[in-house]
Write a protein that binds this DNA or RNA. Structure first.
Lengths: 349, 349
DNA sequence: CTGAAAGCGCTTACAG
DNA sequence: CTGAAAGCGCTTACAG
């Protein structure tokens, strides 16, 4: 026998009130025509009994599970908390649950993760792809959160514009030589951010880009970035393409006795958890994850309601770009010629 | 009419093969007695058609959703990625999906989040409570991941032992005065960690504890911790109760020109994402999240299979403690009287 | 070894 | 305004 659900069902409420299950269902959902008095009685009784509708029964009948999948293949992504939280909030507000699927960084495992979600009957899914993955025929609507440069339709922060914000900020501080620090040359997101920075440079400014992954390939994981040397070459601003790299730059500079922000500026991206609390706090650019999640989820929900059949379609009608917001904190400061003395003064004191 | 599922169902396979749905079901699940030849044919045909069983149908019939809930009320918890990943992996291996519920830090919202999961019909849930929340009657089996000091049954890392590892490590380096840096005095986890450190001190060593939350209450968010002053008082080791606080300590010390690890040692807890990549990389203590997740999930699954009725019970039969592992990196060094010179040497060179 | 039938809980045309 | 009935897709005793 099937195991008993603990709570009451429609039938129990109906019997106990001497009405039909159809009427109970209508009263609870507010759909069919039921007299106000009866609606009142039914709802009160249902509440009293602690009635919780069976998702299984509803799902079987309607063909909708009321659940969205969230695929995050990039394991240790420090943005994960923010993304998951924003998606869960938006989905929850739209009456959906969120089933997660992490593929532990394995690239092929992304497909498996997607399949698992399909098997669980999700009505749609949000995918944050690792690098430029091609999302192939999941049999349900899909929204991709990545960057505008990704082929196909996506919702994304405007990483390019975010880069321009950084460039403008650094320009206003008087910096002339910017070292852009990225992790991964293949990443669309990082390339957009770097492109934005370069595009935002004023005449007389120049930039150079350091890709950590490549450096580590030659020198070993966790190696130093050689920023002191760069500072000596005249770079006064270190613009990382993520707060993780910014943190790495900041600590390396500090250990080498280069003062931030007195000697050089450091900036990041994403406003990750540690950015406000390190010393100096990090100037960064924040994605409006709530808006992005809202757009992704509502596009998904719209598509789900619109079509009776589930199809494997990308749901964002076109690429949506959500602006990023510059957050100025202590790690970026004004360039002054006399910093050298300042710094020595600090150290000696 | 209910919207059509896209794929074939048991009935379609049965008709197309001229057998009954019962036989198809039995063949696919391997439960009833079906001849090997028929099993073969049915499975081949099902695969060919791309048959995906309906979770809704199965759930309605069996009374099991095959889904576990994960409640993480602490919004921005940087451990979130590791926890979610470990739970998802363990659940997935046991054939379960994971539905997430984040309550955005709101304490009362935890109950709402739990209710939402119950309404979605989860078979059980894993709760990582914020502070010492009392988990009240969710109508399904519950596993709590927190710390052994939490009332009720839990699975947890052995935070106390982790603290002792740190103390032993610092003792072996010759440190005498340890500043313990915590965030939240109410946290069971942090108190256990701090208690472990204190318990592990050797004769001749002493410790003092700094609670950031309290300091910020007086001085404002993002304030400095005044570690330079502490260093002047003779503290040579700064043992943070989380890598986030360790990072805060590290950057503050560095900005004040105090060299880590030449002048003082810094240690953390949790081996968070940035710990291996900052300069100097952070000595820390790692939780075996995979084992913890495995224990929580298997306790849950056991309880689900054992009882036909769903009850609101804590499933870990007793408190399980999973050992933590010390990871020694650069941020902790040997105390020597002559460090001052060494450091200057580095800077000058 | 195989099949007919019941029923999990719900929603939705349809009839009254 | 209310109810009887069908059916979503599955699994499981039970009969043959």
């Amino acid at each position: 026998m099937a195991s008993q659900r603990p709570g009451p069902n429609l039938s129990r409420i109906a019997t106990s009130l001497g009405v039909s299950v159809a009427t109970v269902s209508n009263a609870l959902s507010g759909k069919g025509r039921v007299s106000d008095a009866l609606i009142e009685r039914i709802r009160a009784h249902a509440a009293e009994l602690g009635y919780v509708p069976s998702q299984a029964g509803r799902a079987l009948r309607t063909g909708r599970s009321g659940v969205l999948g969230l695929v995050l293949p990039d394991i240790a992504n420090p943005l994960f908390p923010k993304i998951a939280q924003a998606i869960e909030y938006a989905a929850s507000a739209a009456g959906y649950g969120v089933l997660i699927a992490d593929s532990r960084g394995d690239i092929t495992a992304q497909t498996e993760a997607i399949n698992r979600l399909v098997e669980r009957g999700v009505d749609g899914m949000v995918i944050v792809p690792r690098r430029a993955t091609r999302i192939s025929g999941a049999s349900c609507p899909v929204a991709v959160i990545d960057t505008a440069s990704t082929p196909g339709n996506t919702v994304a922060a405007d990483h390019w514009q975010g880069g321009k914000e950084i460039a403008a900020h650094l320009a206003s501080l008087g910096h002339k030589q910017i070292l852009i620090i990225g992790n991964n040359r293949e990443s669309n997101v990082q390339n957009d951010r770097a492109g934005g920075i370069r595009a935002g440079l004023q005449p007389g400014m120049r930039s150079e880009t350091l890709w950590i992954e490549r450096l580590e390939h030659e020198t070993g994981a966790g190696c130093r970035l050689g920023l002191e040397e760069k500072a000596r070459q005249g770079f006064t601003a270190f613009a990382a393409l993520s707060d993780l790299q910014a943190l790495r730059a900041l600590t390396e500079l500090q250990q080498d006795g280069i003062s931030v922000p007195a000697d050089v500026s450091v900036t990041g991206f994403d406003d990750l958890i540690w950015s406000p609390v390190v010393t100096p706090s990090l100037t960064t650019v924040r994605m409006d994850m709530d808006t992005i999640a809202e757009i992704a989820v509502s596009a998904l929900v719209e598509r789900i309601n619109e079509s009776g059949t589930r199809e494997g379609v990308l749901v964002t009608a076109h690429t949506e770009r959500v602006p990023m917001q510059l957050i100025i904190r202590q790690s970026s400061g004004l360039m002054k010629p006399a910093t050298k003395n300042l710094r020595d003064g600090e150290l000696v004191e």
